[in-house]
């Protein structure tokens, strides 16, 4: 990433969003440094409201909420980011192949994509978790498939536009083969918009992961996930509201931060696109 992209984060809101994301990621990486364990129960400490010892209070088993929250960040972020990465890789391959080969293959891919597009993502994800079984692998695959259509569609559209560019014909006139044109011209030029949309989709994926966790289909206890914590807290919303409020806030603030940072990225890349420059 060069200078103009960094410029997008000079303004306070994108900068704060990026800072928050860095903090959450750091917390997820360094989660083991917490003085508490996320899975050791201490029933005598249950239902403590936020205090100096437990900054965000404790849950119904007396576990430190902040510790569980940052361990939950580990689960939520790794599941969403991995799922989106799988989705982007498969979607790009599928979309590029559809645009490149055309014909019946393109029609088959387009029809399938349009069909899955017409279902809510949560429905696709629920069906897949039901097939694969609950747990982190199940949710990961479910989220990856739920967003596959989006990246397939976007890549296909990008490649179709790029295919008509004269520089592709120019490469062909020099004797370039299909592999060269695909890997050196088409995919690199299609990458930027796909990556930006992947970043925005990661926000949605975090919500989807939390939703599946809320239904008890995500990471299984005692491993914490933000959705699972909210689910446990929902029964205690009047007795110990902090148990549901903090994971909920965590999801909301993180997703908003991703969207704001993503928007800034889109804006900065658009300027570059007008100049027809590199990323």
């Amino acid at each position: 990433m060069n200078f103009p992209v960094m410029k997008a984060f000079r303004h306070p809101i994108p900068a704060l969003s990026a800072l928050w994301l860095v903090l959450v990621i750091l917390a997820a990486i360094l989660a083991d440094l917490s003085p508490y364990d996320y899975d050791i129960q201490a029933l005598s400490e249950a239902y403590r409201s936020p205090s100096a010892a437990h900054w965000l209070g404790t849950d119904e088993f007396g576990r430190d909420l902040l510790t569980r929250l940052i361990h939950g960040a580990r689960t939520s972020l790794s599941v969403s980011v991995t799922a989106i990465a799988i989705s982007v890789a498969c979607g790009m391959a599928l979309g590029a192949a559809a645009a490149w080969f055309g014909g019946w293959f393109d029609r088959a891919v387009t029809v399938t994509v349009d069909l899955t597009w017409s279902f809510p993502e949560i429905l696709i994800a629920l069906i897949l978790v039901a097939i694969i079984g609950p747990g982190t692998t199940g949710t990961m695959v479910a989220i990856a498939v739920a967003y596959l259509a989006q990246f397939t569609r976007l890549t296909r559209a990008q490649i179709l536009t790029l295919k008509g560019e004269t520089f592709i014909e120019a490469a062909r006139s020099l004797g370039a083969g299909n592999t060269h044109i695909l890997t050196r011209h088409l995919l690199p030029n299609a990458l930027a918009p796909v990556l930006v949309s992947a970043m925005l989709a990661t926000g949605d994926a975090i919500i989807l992961e939390a939703t599946l966790g809320f239904f008890g289909l995500g990471a299984q206890p005692p491993v914490p996930s933000w959705g699972g914590m909210m689910s446990a807290g929902s029964a205690l919303i009047f007795k110990a509201p902090w148990i549901i409020i903090f994971p909920g806030l965590m999801v909301a603030v993180t997703v908003v931060a991703i969207n704001l940072a993503g928007d800034a990225l889109v804006a900065s890349l658009d300027i570059k696109a007008k100049l027809r420059g590199p990323i």
């Binding site: 004269t166 011209h185 030029n189 027809r276």
Partner: peptide, 8 residues
């Protein structure tokens, strides 16, 4: 000449 050179 605007579209005959790869912008990247």
């Amino acid at each position: 000449p605007y579209s005959s050179l790869d912008p990247r």
